[in-house]
């Protein structure tokens, strides 16, 4: 009997060790917490909810505050969508805690995809008070910088931009970063321009592709055809605890600073918008900024007498 209990104890201890290694909450603790607060499982680390229910479910409750989220695109030509989605996530992190942001990019990407433009970022919904941009010369320096930024715990989110899959940024380095992030409880967003899927310590990996923007909404609720409204991203959740891959279209509403899931059927319908081009589908510049003044301007003449 006593032997049996001892064996069970060992099994529990092993289970806890495994759970800790995997970054999950301890099974016994989690059950207790779930019953106590009614939270879904995974309450041991802070999570930021994305606001899209089925995405939150797939992410075990939201984006990890103390961990790496990796975003990947097919190439530099999709830099806009990739940085856009990263900024949107950064915005969610910043909404929870208004702190500075740090954007680390290598010189190549900075020159090929452009520099983050604070006025545009502000318009996108980020708070750009104390926005820092770092462009180290070498990848090793960039990694050091990311580690220092994470362990200092100052930044609401640290963005780390790399191109492709450099040899010096492998599993070991990403493990280091992940441990730093976990210790400080601060998120790191890795943006991989044109990267392959690779083993890493990121908790989640998204594949980001651009998608047609939703049209601007008019006050009466209808859509203004032909306009470019909120940005839409086509995401594929490639790495997560859940086995099923998830593909979805998310719209970033920069006014409300939230993500909205687009209904795939509606989306399919909206794709039927005529995309064949004719000059007429593009706007005529009627409401340009400096229209020709109307003829016959009224002049105030001096009185004759």
């Amino acid at each position: 009997m006593a032997k049996n209990a001892l064996a069970q104890e060992t099994v529990f201890a092993l289970r806890e060790t495994i759970a800790r290694l995997e970054g999950k909450s301890l099974p016994a603790l989690a059950a207790a917490q779930a019953s106590q607060a009614g939270h879904p499982a995974g309450g041991d680390e802070a999570r930021i909810r994305t606001g899209v229910d089925f995405l939150d479910e797939a992410l075990d409750g939201g984006l990890p505050c103390g961990g790496i989220t990796e975003l990947r695109s097919d190439g530099l030509r999709h830099a806009g969508a990739l940085s856009g989605f990263a900024m949107a996530l950064g915005c969610l992190f910043q909404r929870a805690e208004n702190r500075p942001l740090l954007w680390i990019s290598d010189r190549m990407t900075a020159s090929d995809a452009g520099l983050p433009y604070p006025i545009g970022l502000k318009r996108f919904g980020l708070s750009i008070h104390r926005f820092l941009h770092a462009a180290p010369n070498r990848l090793e320096d960039a990694l050091w910088l990311a580690e220092a930024a994470l362990s200092s715990g100052i930044f609401a989110a640290t963005f780390f931009e790399v191109r492709g899959n450099p040899a010096h940024f492998g599993l070991t380095e990403s493990r280091r970063l992940s441990l730093r992030a976990k210790a400080a409880g601060r998120p790191l967003l890795i943006l991989r321009h044109g990267g392959e899927e690779e083993a890493s310590s990121a908790l989640f990996r998204f594949h980001v592709e651009p998608s047609l923007a939703s049209p601007r909404r008019l006050p009466d609720g209808s859509m203004l055809g032909g306009s470019i409204g909120s940005s839409v991203f086509h995401l594929t959740l490639e790495k997560s605890r859940n086995a099923a891959p998830l593909s979805l279209h998310l719209e970033w509403n920069h006014h409300d600073r939230r993500l909205i899931a687009l209904d795939p059927t509606e989306r399919a319908f909206s794709f039927e918008r005529p995309t064949a081009l004719s000059g007429a589908s593009l706007p005529k510049a009627l409401d340009r900024q400096d229209p020709a003044p109307p003829l016959g301007a009224v002049l105030a003449f001096d009185r004759a007498s």
Binding site: G114, L115, Y117, I119
Partner: peptide, 14 residues
């Protein structure tokens, strides 16, 4: 005004 005005891109080429 400059901040709240028109649409501006997220990334600007040097």
């Amino acid at each position: 005004n400059a901040l709240s005005g028109k649409e501006r891109p997220l990334r600007l080429f040097r």
